[in-house]
Amino acid sequence: MKIMLIGASGTLGSAVHRTLADRGHDVLTVGRGAGALRADVSDPAGVAALYDAAGPLDAVACAAGDVPFKPLSALTADDFHAGLRGKVLSQVELVRQGVSRIAERGSFTLVTGVLAREPIVAGSVASLANGAIEAFVRAAAIEIAPQRVNAVSPTIVTESVPDYGDFFRGMPSVDLADVARAYVRSIEGAQTGQVFIP
């Protein structure tokens, strides 16, 4: 399959890229500062240009999404707008514009995270964004068939515990390889409207 992977140079994206490539897929990497194609997917015009440059695709997968982490008392309306634009609207736009651009039985795999169901201090924007993506996946799935859409919702990855473990106290971690396998399940499988929790 020809798969466009957004966020391919990040910690998660790199693992997903390697896994998909090892399985024989043609992976078109996308990032803001690195990748075969460069794009800011928080800009709808950038998403349109990205699809124009990519050509025919079988699947689109996203492993990127920016949200601010601050205590609720310190968050501004702009912080919430930034989180929605950076993680929710960017991924919604990939699906909205992509349904006419990918294969008839193609798929979309979006990224959410544990904070949709297990909140942490200073994570309210991430919880809001993750919950919104998971609701969108369920709703979009009933409208875009036979195309499919799913989300992968990991907890903190083991490889990032040294940097971010203090924010996720007491939460079990998951290896990057397990998260990458959830992307494979979404892309190569037959299910739709699912939130895969590796």
Rank of each mutant, 00 (worst) to 15 (best):
L5E: 03
I6K: 04
I6F: 03
I6N: 06
G7R: 03
G7C: 06
S9H: 13
S9W: 09
S14V: 04
A15M: 08
V16F: 06
H17R: 15
T19G: 02
L20V: 04
A21P: 02
H25D: 13
L28H: 05
V30A: 07
G31A: 11
R32P: 05
R32N: 03
R32T: 09
G33N: 15
G33E: 11
G35S: 07
G35Q: 05
A36Q: 15
A36K: 14
R38P: 12
A39E: 07
A39W: 06
D40I: 13
D40T: 12
S42W: 02
D43G: 04
D43H: 04
A45W: 03
G46H: 10
V47G: 01
V47W: 01
A49C: 10
A49Y: 09
Y51R: 06
Y51F: 15
D52F: 05
G55D: 00
G55Q: 00
G55E: 00
P56C: 02
P56G: 02
A63S: 13
A63H: 04
A64L: 09
G65L: 00
D66W: 12
V67L: 01
V67G: 00
F69T: 10
F69V: 11
F69S: 11
L72K: 06
S73C: 11
A74P: 12
A77P: 08
D78R: 14
D79F: 08
F80A: 14
G83D: 06
G83C: 09
R85G: 13
K87W: 08
Q91Y: 01
E93K: 01
L94E: 01
V99K: 10
R101S: 06
A103T: 03
R105E: 12
G106Y: 06
G106L: 05
F108Q: 01
F108L: 04
T109E: 02
V111W: 00
T112I: 08
G113L: 09
G113C: 10
G113Y: 08
R117F: 03
E118G: 05
P119R: 08
P119A: 07
G123H: 11
S124M: 08
S124R: 05
S127R: 07
L128D: 04
L128V: 14
G131D: 12
A132T: 15
A132K: 12
I133V: 15
I133P: 03
A135M: 08
V137Q: 00
V137A: 01
V137H: 00
A139E: 07
A139V: 08
A139N: 10
A140Y: 03
A140D: 02
A140C: 06
I144M: 13
R148M: 11
S153C: 10
P154Q: 09
P154R: 11
T155L: 14
V157N: 00
V161M: 07
V161L: 08
D163H: 12
D163R: 14
D163W: 11
D166R: 15
G170D: 02
M171H: 15
P172D: 15
P172S: 14
S173T: 14
L176D: 01
A177R: 13
V179Q: 10
A180W: 04
A182L: 09
Y183Q: 08
R185N: 04
R185E: 13
R185Q: 13
G189R: 03
A190E: 14
G193T: 04
Q194I: 10
Q194F: 02
F196G: 05
F196W: 13
